[in-house]
Design a protein around this nucleic acid. Structure first.
Length: 490
RNA sequence: GAGCCGUUAGCUCAGUCGGUAGAGCCCCUGCCUUUUAAGCAGGUUGUCGCGCGUUCGAGUCGCGCACGGCUCACCA
C-alpha cells in the first residue's frame, strides 16, 4: 500500500478511536485565553514569582516524547510556544491519549501555568489539553522545509506553514497596501470601486479575457485597467480618486507577469504629470519609511535610495545616452530601424515608430535604471489617453518610472480634449486594422462622458506586485502573489 | 509560442559504466519525567512524472507527452 494512503488511514483510525472514546475531533468552539505571543508576553510582564496561567491553541509543529513526559511546540498566527506534558500531572489516560492519538499537524488547546525550562524557554506546563482539529496528512519535513517550487505555489498553505520568510513577504505586502491607502486617504483621495466586468475594455494596451453574461446575452471583458471609469468619476466631480484592484491581461506568464495582478490607479483633478511625479516619489519613500523603517532598499545587491527627488530624463535623452541614437533625428520607422541596426542593436519588428522607440528604450535603457528614475515624454502613438506636449505635439506629457531595472508605473497629464481623444481612438482603430491586437478599442460611452467637460487632470498607475517585489527583494512575481497562475495538473 | 534544465519514498536529496532502488527526516514498536534537529534499539515505505522504443536486462540510452524552473518573445 502506498505510504501516504497508509498514513492517512492510520490517522483516520486514530480519529475513529477518539470518537469511540466520546471525543469530538472537530469541536466548534475554542476556549483560549491568550495567543501564543500574548502568553509569552504575559509571562515576561508578570512580577517575579507570580504564577501566570494561560490556555493557548494552535497547530502542533513538533513533538518530543521522553517516556513519561513530552515536549511539543504549538504555533498560531502570532508565533509559537512550547508546551510540556507530564503523565503525573495529566493522569495516565489523558497523557496516553496525547501520545497515541495526536500527531504533528493536529490543532490542540492546552492550559496550564507558564514556567521557564532549564534552557530558558517559556513553556506551558499542561494541566489540561484538548484536541480541536485532527489533521489527516503529514506536514512537510521539519529540517529542510518545503523547497519544491511547484508544491510551494500549488499548496501555498504548506509553504506558509513551512517557510517563515514566505509568511513575512505576505505580511509585508499587506502592510505596503495599508500604507498606500493611509498615504492617499490622508491627502484627501477617495477610494472607489469600478467595474471589473466591462462591455468595452480599455485604459491600456493589452489583450483582454473575454467572458459572457447569460441574462444580458452579451460579451463582457475582464478589465485590463481602471482608467476610463476613474476618469468618468473625475468628470463627475470627485477631484481625487484611487482604486486598488486586479487587472486581467491575456498575455504570457513570466517572472514579471501574472495574468491577474494588483494595480493601483490614482487621478487628481487640476494637476498634471509633474504633480504625479512628486506624488510617486513621496508615496514610495513614505511607504518604505513606514513599512521598512528606511527609504533605502536593497534589491538584487543594489542599494536603492527612494528618497525624493528622483532622477528625471526624457525618453529622447535616455536613448541618446545609452545607444547614441537621437530619436528626433530618426522620426520615421525605417530610419530608426536602420540606426539601431547600424549600432548592432537587435530589435523585433513593431507596428509603428512609437512602439519601436519604446522597444529601443526597453532594450538599451531599461536595465540600466537601477536608481529610481522618471522617463518622460513618450511618443503620442503609444499613448492614446495622454495629453500632447504643447511645444511638441508628436510627444505626450507622460512618464514611466523605473526602479531596480523594473518598469514600475505609468502616468500622464490626462487627455481631456474630447475631439483629440476621438482622433486618438480612430488612430488606434487603424492600428488594430493593421494587426495590432493590443490597440485600444473605440469607446463612445467614454467620449460621451468627456464631451461633458473634464478638468485638467493628472493620472497615475503602478503595479502593486512589482512594488512588493522591490520591497522584499524578490525577482519572481510568483513570490509575491499568494496563488500565482499555473497550468492545471493532469 | 521557442530554447535550455529539471521531475527518484510524505519532505530534502544520493543513485557510478545499463545488471536485485538508497540515505536522513517523517511514520510504526520498545526504552526514556526539563527536551528543543532530544537520544538509544528495531522496523515499514516506491507507478524512479507518463507513454512508446532500443536491449537478455532501463531510474540510467532514444523518441513523444505532461508539469515546473530559467531565458527569449509579449507586456505592467
Amino acid at each position: 500500500m502506498p505510504e501516504t494512503r497508509e498514513r492517512r488511514e492510520q490517522r483516520i483510525a486514530k480519529l475513529e478511536r477518539l470518537r469511540e472514546l466520546g471525543i469530538e475531533p472537530y469541536p466548534a468552539r475554542v476556549h483560549r485565553t491568550h495567543s501564543t505571543a500574548e502568553a509569552l508576553e504575559a509571562f515576561q510582564q508578570a512580577p517575579e514569582g507570580q504564577r501566570v496561567t494561560v490556555r493557548v491553541a494552535g497547530r502542533l509543529m513538533t513533538i518530543r516524547v521522553m517516556g513519561r513526559s513530552t515536549f511539543a511546540h504549538i504555533a498560531d498566527g502570532s508565533g509559537r510556544i512550547q508546551i510540556y506534558l507530564r503523565r503525573d500531572l495529566l493522569g495516565e489516560e489523558s497523557y496516553e491519549l496525547f501520545r497515541r492519538q495526536v500527531d504533528v499537524g493536529d490543532f490542540i488547546e492546552a492550559e496550564g501555568p507558564l514556567f521557564r525550562t532549564r534552557t530558558g524557554e517559556i513553556t506551558v506546563e499542561v494541566h489540561d489539553w484538548r484536541l480541536i482539529a485532527k489533521a489527516l496528512r503529514p506536514l512537510p519535513e521539519k529540517w529542510h522545509g518545503l523547497k519544491d517550487v511547484e508544491t510551494r505555489y500549488r499548496q501555498r498553505y504548506l509553504d506558509l506553514i513551512a517557510n517563515e520568510e514566505v509568511r513575512q513577504i505576505f505580511i509585508l505586502r499587506s502592510k505596503i497596501i495599508r500604507a498606500i491607502r493611509r498615504f492617499l486617504d490622508e491627502r484627501g483621495f477617495l477610494e472607489v470601486e469600478t467595474p471589473i466586468l466591462q462591455p468595452i475594455y480599455g485604459g491600456a494596451a493589452a489583450r483582454p479575457f473575454t467572458t459572457y453574461h447569460n441574462a444580458l446575452d452579451r460579451t463582457l471583458y475582464l478589465r485590463i485597467a481602471d482608467e476610463l471609469y476613474l476618469k468618468r468619476l473625475i468628470i463627475g466631480g470627485f477631484d481625487k480618486v484611487y482604486e486598488i484592484g486586479h487587472n486581467f491581461r491575456n498575455e504570457g506568464i513570466s517572472v514579471k507577469h501574472n495574468p491577474e495582478f494588483t494595480a493601483i490607479e490614482i487621478y487628481q483633478a487640476y494637476a498634471d504629470y509633474n504633480d504625479m511625479m512628486r506624488l510617486v516619489e513621496e508615496l514610495f519613500s513614505s511607504v518604505a519609511q513606514e513599512v521598512l523603517g528606511t527609504t533605502t532598499i536593497t534589491f538584487q545587491g543594489h542599494e536603492i535610495n527612494l528618497a525624493p527627488p528622483w532622477r528625471r530624463l526624457t525618453m529622447r535623452e535616455a536613448i541618446l545616452q545609452e545607444s547614441g541614437i537621437d530619436i528626433e533625428e530618426h522620426r520615421d520607422y525605417e530610419s530608426l530601424w536602420q540606426a539601431a541596426e547600424e549600432r548592432g542593436i537587435k530589435l523585433t519588428k513593431q507596428p509603428n515608430w512609437g512602439k519601436l522607440v519604446e522597444k529601443l528604450f526597453a532594450e538599451t535603457v531599461e536595465p540600466t535604471l537601477i536608481q529610481p528614475t522618471f522617463i518622460t515624454d513618450y511618443p503620442v502613438e503609444i499613448s492614446p489617453l495622454a495629453k500632447r506636449k504643447p511645444e511638441a505635439p508628436h510627444l505626450v506629457e507622460r512618464f514611466e518610472f523605473f526602479i531596480g531595472g523594473l518598469e514600475c508605473g505609468n502616468a500622464f497629464t490626462e487627455l481631456n480634449d474630447p475631439l483629440d481623444q476621438r482622433e486618438r481612438f480612430l488612430a488606434q482603430r487603424k492600428e488594430a486594422e493593421g494587426g495590432d491586437e493590443e490597440a485600444h478599442p473605440m469607446d463612445e460611452d467614454f467620449l460621451l462622458a468627456m464631451e461633458h467637460g473634464m478638468p485638467p487632470t493628472g493620472g497615475l498607475g503602478f503595479g502593486i506586485d512589482r512594488m512588493v517585489m522591490l520591497f522584499t527583494d524578490q525577482t519572481s512575481i510568483r513570490e509575491v502573489i499568494l496563488f500565482p497562475q499555473l497550468r492545471s495538473k493532469a
